[in-house]
Amino acid sequence: MSVLEVKHISKSFGTSNVLSDINLTFEANKIYGLLGRNSAGKSTLLNIITNRIFADSGEVTIDSENVAENDSKLGQMFLMSEVNTYPAGSTLSFIIKQTEQLYGGFNHQLANRLVNEFELDLSQKFGKLSTGYNSIFKLVLALCVPVKFVIFDEPVLGLDANHREIFYTELLQSYSDTPRTIILSTHLIEEITQIISDVIVIDHGNILLDQTVEDVLSKTHAVAGPSSDVNQYTNGLNVIGSETMGNLKTNYVFGDLDDRILPDTVQLSKFDLQKLFIFLTTGAPVKGGNKGEN
C-alpha cells in the first residue's frame, strides 16, 4: 500500500507563480480527479510529481522516500501526458517493447484487447498518429505498465464518444483487476464524477478543494424560490453562485446548512460537481449577485 505525497511544492516560471505551496496526499488504490481550468497549474504539478521538471521548493515522496532521481520510485509512476515523449520515427510495437524493458513488465493480454477494441494499428509510426490515436496509444501504455500510480493528463483528448466509453469501461475493469492509485486530470468533469472517489480542484496554483466526492456533493445545495425568500434563507451561508429568472432565484450554497427553517416557498436540491467547479473557479469573488446569466 503505497502513498504518494506532495509536500510544499512551489513553482514559478519567470515572474508568474504557477504553484504556491501545494500539499496533497494520494492514497493507495483510490481514483482521484484533478480538476482545474486551463493553465491552472495541473500539468506543471504532474510534471513535478514525475520529476520531469523541478520544483522551486518542496518535495514529492512515495512512502516517505523522495522520488527525485530515484529509479525505483520513478518506476512506480506512469504519466500519460499531452507532450510527446516518444521518438516520432518509432513504431508503436517498438515503443511497447521499450516500455516493457524499462518498466520491467507489460500486460500484453490487456494490451491486445485494447488494441482490438480501439482498432489501433501497432505497425504505425508514432509520429504519424492522429490526435485521437495518439491519446489512445498512450492510454494503452498507461493501463498496461506495472505501476502503483497511473496518472492521466487529458486522457480523452481527441477521442470520440465511443472511444471515451471504451476508455472509462476498460479503466474500471483494469482498476478492479489490479487495484492501484489513479489520477485523472480532465476537463470532462461530468464523465468522471462517478468514477472518481476523491476530487482535487486547483486554481491559479492553489488547491481549492481536496475531499471525497461524496462529501463534496453532500455539501452542495441549490436553494430556489422567490428572490427575497431565497436571499433571506441563504443569508450567512456560503453562497458561491446564483441564477435569476424573473422573480425566481436560485442560490447555490456550498457548505452545511444549519438548522434554519425552510420556508414553504423555497425548494432545496443538489447540484453537480461541474456546476460547483464552474462557480469555484470563475475568478471574480462570488457574492450573492446575479452572475449566472453570462
Binding site: T50, D71, G75, Y86, Q98
Partner: peptide, 16 residues
Amino acid sequence: YESFKMFIQNGISRRT
C-alpha cells in the same frame, strides 16, 4: 534531449 524525454517518461532518472 530526445533520449532524455523517452527515459524520463519511462521512470528512468537523469543519473541512470
